[in-house]
């Protein structure tokens, strides 16, 4: 084996090691590196009480209720597996709306509800002009 071939094999092994390291890092951090808890995770592994966490999911349809004080809202966050009721006082981002993604920062209460101190709107990967979105919305309504 010539020196060049030897270096080629070594470089190949190095690339394999790098890819392996990336995959190991990704899977090892799978739970720790999650940006938020989904309602289904909480149901499975118990409430993370007594510390600040983030809760993420979809805002359930027809669940946003404005409170009489004018700055508080209540809504439900769902991921299809479980649903968590959330209370929030403050200014919600513009993209916060029903059937859209949300990440709430705050803490869980012992009764399973969530008190949020800050809301982030989570955008999904779909981008479309208003006409197309409107048309899709109409079809959905017609089907129903």
């Amino acid at each position: 084996m010539t020196a060049k071939n030897q270096r080629l094999v070594l470089a190949g092994l190095a690339v394999l090691a790098v890819v392996g390291a990336a995959l190991l890092a990704l899977s090892a951090l799978k739970d720790q590196a999650a940006f938020f808890y989904a309602p289904g995770d909480v149901e499975k592994s118990g409430l993370p009480l007594g510390r600040e966490v983030r809760l993420g999911g979809m805002v359930a349809a027809n669940s946003i209720a404005r409170q009489p004080d004018g700055v508080s809202i209540r809504f439900r966050v769902t991921d299809g597996r479980a649903t968590v009721p959330v209370a929030f006082t403050g200014i919600a981002p513009d993209l916060f709306r029903e059937r859209s993604g949300v990440v709430a920062e705050g803490h869980f209460n012992p009764d399973g509800s969530f008190t949020a101190t800050n809301l982030l709107a989570k955008h999904d990967e779909k981008y479309m002009p208003p006409e197309v979105a409107g048309a899709m919305h109409e079809t959905k309504t017609l089907e129903r």
């Binding site: 790098v18 890819v19 390291a21 990336a22 995959l23 890092a25 990704l26 899977s27 951090l29 799978k30 590196a33 999650a34 940006f35 938020f36 808890y37 989904a38 993420g56 990440v103 982030l120 989570k122």
Partner: peptide
């Protein structure tokens, strides 16, 4: 090592 992590971070983890 960072390239696949960046690429698949949104698939493998809950991300904003």
């Amino acid at each position: 090592v960072l390239l696949p992590i960046i690429r698949y971070s949104v698939v493998w983890w809950n991300t904003l």
